[in-house]
Computed example of a mutant assay.
Amino acid sequence: MTFRNLLLACLLLLATSQGFAQTTDSTATDTARINRRKLLPIVASEAAFYVAGMSYLQFVWYKDHERVPFHFYNDARGYQQVDKFGHAFGAYVESYMGYRLLRNAGVPKGKALLYGGTLGLVLQTPIEVWDGLYEGWGFSAPDMVANAAGSALVIGQELLFDEQVARYKFSFSPSPYYKQANGYLGDSHLESLFLDYNAHTYWLSVPINKLAFKSTIPDWASVAVGYSAGGMFGEFSNRTYYRGTYLPETERYRQYLFSLDVDWTRIKTDNKLLNTLLKGMFFIKLPFPALEVNSKGQVKGHWLYY
């Protein structure tokens, strides 16, 4: 499920934050020597994170679920595919961090893409395998495709453009359904971050000067296209009753969005702390006015969408 991917991505960012904050946008040359003082802490942090994550799954997440023979679960239609965008996003963030950290340590590009660019897929695959071994879950091939797509987005752009032209970003705002759900979408705003897919929006953000071929436009100024959905009180269809309360009847629909954005990593300042902060915000979509077209046939304008 998406919230485990988001949680893993956030924890990985925290676990490697010191090394990731020191990365630069300049590409290390393949002839540069590997900096072992940088590389060893990176490898140790990611190995510890991986062991901790797998231990959490085995001893905490699945502890109340019965072990069953390996089986599959087709959730391709679940949550209007917002869940799949979330899987791709988690893998993208993890792969991007893995690649940039290794490049900053002087690892040649090919090896950095092999060991770092695939990190998202490597971290997410055991989750799907574990799901296939426990009752109430199941190995999801669509989730695996989404995980692979997130890592492929990092690797493909580095091979084609030697940079991340399109940034995969996330924005969250408590949905109007949260208060109507009587806890089904979370008992707090923090829980709703992981449980309320109505509140998730996933974006592809591209600098305007890359599209217009005009270098006079600041390279941090971007446009973004986004995807979200609404009206969801369940994975495939809406629940009608929860915790002794009838849930409202709603129409499930998809949202397609167009907005402006800022590529934080392309903003340069003389302040080291601020530069570190900006680099760490590479996956965050800045609130901006947005145009929405949805599957209900509506066209809406938002003064500020986040």
Rank of each mutant, 00 (worst) to 15 (best):
F233Y: 15
D83I: 07
F59S: 12
N74P: 06
M54H: 13
F139L: 14
S151T: 06
R243V: 01
A21Q: 10
L40C: 01
S215E: 14
A224Q: 10
G19T: 05
A112F: 00
F49G: 09
R77F: 05
T201V: 14
S215H: 06
S259N: 05
T269I: 11
A28N: 09
Q80N: 11
E249V: 14
G120A: 09
S228H: 08
Q180P: 02
R4K: 04
F282H: 14
L13W: 00
L160Y: 10
I42Y: 05
G106S: 08
G110W: 11
K296D: 14
R77Y: 08
R33V: 02
V51Y: 14
D261L: 04
H189D: 04
A148M: 13
H71P: 05
G132T: 08
T2D: 08
N182S: 13
Y50P: 00
K38F: 04
L195K: 14
A290R: 11
H65P: 00
G117P: 01
N74A: 12
V51P: 09
S45T: 02
R266W: 06
G116I: 00
G234Q: 06
Y73A: 15
A32Y: 03
D64N: 15
G78M: 03
G226D: 13
L204I: 15
L278D: 07
Y96L: 01
A52M: 14
A91L: 00
T245F: 10
T216G: 02
Y246M: 07
L153A: 10
Y227N: 07
G226C: 08
R33Y: 01
R67Y: 13
L304D: 04
V129I: 15
V154G: 01
E249W: 02
S222F: 01
P142G: 09
